[in-house]
Amino acid sequence: MYGILLSALWSALAWVARSVLVKFVLYFGLFFITTEFIQILTTILPDGSSLRSAFGGLPGSMWWLMNIMQFNVGVPMVLSAYATRFIIRRIPVIG
């Protein structure tokens, strides 16, 4: 009986070591690389000062139309979707 329990314990530990532990290390590495890549990428990308100056010259009627179309909600959504798509396609394991 002791041999059966010991065999079952070693089988369970082997499964944990082979599947769970390896996947945890792999996915943690991907998470760490991705978060560090995004931090580096945000320092390289330009800030929004050029967009502020570009939209500063718009007349009031254009701002009214952009507010009706929820431009302030839609543009950040589209830009973040494009950034997410870019990042996912650059990770070789996922994309």
Rank of each mutant, 00 (worst) to 15 (best):
S49L: 07
F32I: 03
Y2G: 09
I40M: 05
L5T: 07
R89C: 02
V93G: 06
P59F: 06
I88D: 04
N72E: 12
N72R: 15
F32Y: 14
R85P: 00
R90V: 01
W10R: 02
V25D: 00
M66C: 10
Y2D: 11
I91R: 03
R18D: 02
W10H: 02
S49G: 01
I44T: 07
K23N: 12
A8I: 14
A83T: 06
W10G: 04
T42N: 10
L6Q: 09
S11I: 11
L41A: 14
Q39N: 10
T42P: 00
P92R: 03
I38V: 15
T35Y: 10
S61G: 00
V93N: 01
F24Y: 06
G29Y: 11
V16W: 08
L41K: 06
L30K: 01
N67C: 03
W10M: 14
E36S: 13
M66F: 15
M69D: 01
R89L: 08
A17N: 03
T42H: 02
L26H: 05
F28L: 15
L45N: 11
F71T: 10
F71G: 12
L21Y: 03
P76H: 03
W15E: 04
L13H: 01
I40C: 02
R52W: 06
K23R: 13
F71V: 15
A14P: 00
L26T: 13
K23T: 10
V20I: 11
W10E: 07
F71M: 15
T43D: 08
V78W: 04
G95M: 04
M77T: 06
V75M: 14
F37K: 04
T34Y: 11
G29L: 13
P59E: 02
A14G: 09
P46A: 07
G3Y: 10
L41Q: 09
A14R: 05
G74C: 08
V75E: 04
K23Q: 12
G29W: 09
A54Y: 13
G57E: 02
V75Y: 06
S7A: 15
G95S: 06
V25G: 00
M1V: 06
A54P: 00
I94P: 01
T84W: 03
G57P: 00
Q70M: 13
A17Y: 01
L30T: 02
I40H: 02
T84F: 10
G56T: 04
L45E: 14
M77W: 01
T35Q: 12
F55T: 06
A8Y: 00
F28G: 09
V20P: 00
T43H: 04
L65T: 06
N67I: 04
T43M: 07
V16F: 13
G57K: 03
I40G: 05
A81Q: 02
Y82W: 13
V93C: 07
S49F: 07
V75T: 07
Q70Y: 13
S7L: 14
I33P: 00
K23C: 09
A54H: 04
